[in-house]
């Protein structure tokens, strides 16, 4: 199973599309590793600097419809090679979400008021998140604040995470 713990990158915008996550010009790469320097380089978000803000982060918390647009799995791969295996949002575009779980990564949806609250309490502060897969709980911690958030994960998605992705899962069953 992949690592779902670490420091959080807050991206305060909805509808972040896959062209912003990894621009199409890098789709000519045939290895995942090659995508590493270009993650989120076209993101339209004033407060964000891809050069300095990604390094050392392991989790993204963002708003609505993350990963809309192209079906490119290069989007989750670009996250994966930057050691980001978990994205938390109000909701996701279908293909992006499936691509995450297909790689044994997680795209977890939380209610909008919960996300609003996480932005309010933790955004702008160095925050770590720990995932408890047995109890379906995220523990967020920063200086002076600590919060437990429960999340839901379908049985199928959990099995994909445990199997390390859809190829392993499908190959053992079909």
């Amino acid at each position: 199973m992949k690592n779902f713990n670490g420091k959080i990158l807050f991206l305060d915008r909805s509808d972040i599309n896959t062209d912003e996550i990894i621009p199409a010009k890098y789709l000519t790469e045939i290895t995942k590793e090659a995508l590493k320097p270009n993650l989120l380089e076209d993101l339209k978000l004033d407060t964000f600097n891809p050069e300095s803000d990604i390094q050392g982060k392991n989790i993204i918390i963002t708003r609505e419809n993350f990963g809309c647009g192209s079906s490119r799995e290069h989007a989750p791969w670009a996250l994966e090679v930057n050691n980001i295996n978990l994205v938390i949002a109000v909701n996701f575009a279908r293909i992006f979400k499936q691509n995450m779980f297909n790689n044994g990564m997680m795209a977890i949806e939380l209610d909008k008021p919960v996300i609003d609250d996480l932005f309010k309490v933790f955004s702008g502060k160095e925050t770590t998140l720990t995932t408890d897969m047995d109890r379906n709980i995220f523990l967020l911690q920063t200086d002076g604040a600590k919060k437990e958030i429960s999340f839901s994960l379908s049985q199928f998605d959990r099995e994909l995470v445990m199997a390390g992705g859809w190829v392993n899962y499908a190959d053992s069953r079909y």
Binding site: S71, R72, I95, Q98, N99, N102, N103, W166, V167
Partner: peptide
């Protein structure tokens, strides 16, 4: 779909 779904589709 993404590449993983495609891969399983091919296989």
């Amino acid at each position: 779909v993404g590449t993983t779904d495609l891969e399983v589709g091919i296989l």
